[in-house]
Design a binder for these strands. Structure first.
Lengths: 152, 152
DNA sequence: CTTGAAGCTGTAGTTACTACAGGATTTACA
DNA sequence: TGTAAATCCTGTAGTAACTACAGCTTCAAG
């Protein structure tokens, strides 16, 4: 609660949350982090609360939450008396996306494994890899479609 | 082989390869598709070869190959007499990326499942989801780190 | 021959950062 | 106290792979 100890520079903050100063400034610009207090010379100084907040952001991003989702999560965690079904809903929605992504990636892996296995090192003209990409009919499953996209 | 029948409009081409006209123009701009022939009025007209090429591109993208990888694959498939170990190398490299991505996504899914299971619908203040995101120590595995990033 | 759909170019927006350039400040050490 | 290296500042532009206009032209059907 005390306001002393705003002694952390942007570089140190970034190091502690495993990101770069540019990223910190970016988060400030888009409003995920509050404007930091400044030294007389104009450099940012932070406290432990900023470390926690930034760490939260970075972890949420690691989990694959979009910045907008993180913004919602932050807004909610700033109000601890709120019922948490919204948090739950965001996590569930995210889980669903992860699951479908997993499913499609699994098919993709099989397809690639098959491609690589069938390529016996001849000429491109008879290359199974090119062939499979050219003609999706040769795929194991239609599910492979869109495997690596929409990763919001 | 014949050059007759350049009767496909950009909209039709896009529809046939399951993308949008904007995407076709984009691929032309970045050189994945050759410049199309034009009507007197300046509209693009395509033949079946363009359908095949665009379909190839879209499938390769679906498989998660980057545009630059697609460019290489196209260059190779344009030279059928080339030995195909380069194609093989690209596919293998891609397979490796897909596999590590899968591994990390699997961990992420477990983490999210655990989060959702532990959220019993109380107040945000005691929400396990927020807690887990805040404190990565609570994670099952360190591997969860970076789960949804670097999907080039 | 008109009308509505589709096409054209060029530019700007998207996401989540990252990378400068060109200068100011801080800090460590002599 | 002086100075030099490290760090910081702002602002802008770049990245990937499209997507979305605005404002205008062309095409195709009836």
């Amino acid at each position: 609660m005390s306001a002393i100890g705003q002694a952390i520079s942007i570089g140190e903050l970034a190091r502690r949350a495993d990101c770069k100063p540019e990223t910190v400034r970016y988060y400030e610009r888009i409003g995920l982090l509050r404007d930091a207090s400044r030294t007389e010379g104009g450099q940012r100084r932070y406290g432990e609360d900023a470390v926690r907040r930034l760490t939260f952001i970075r972890h949420a991003r690691d989990f694959g939450f979009s910045v907008e989702a993180v913004r919602e999560l932050l807004a909610m965690s700033d109000q601890p008396d709120m019922p948490c079904h919204q948090v739950d809903a965001i996590a569930k929605h995210h889980l669903e996306k992860v699951e479908s992504r997993l499913q499609r990636l699994t098919v993709l892996r099989e397809e690639l494994q098959r491609m690589v296995a069938q390529c016996v090192g001849g000429k491109v003209g008879s290359c199974r890899i090119i062939e499979v990409i050219s003609d999706h009919q040769l795929c194991i499953s239609e599910t492979a479609h869109g495997a690596a996209r929409d990763l919001g």
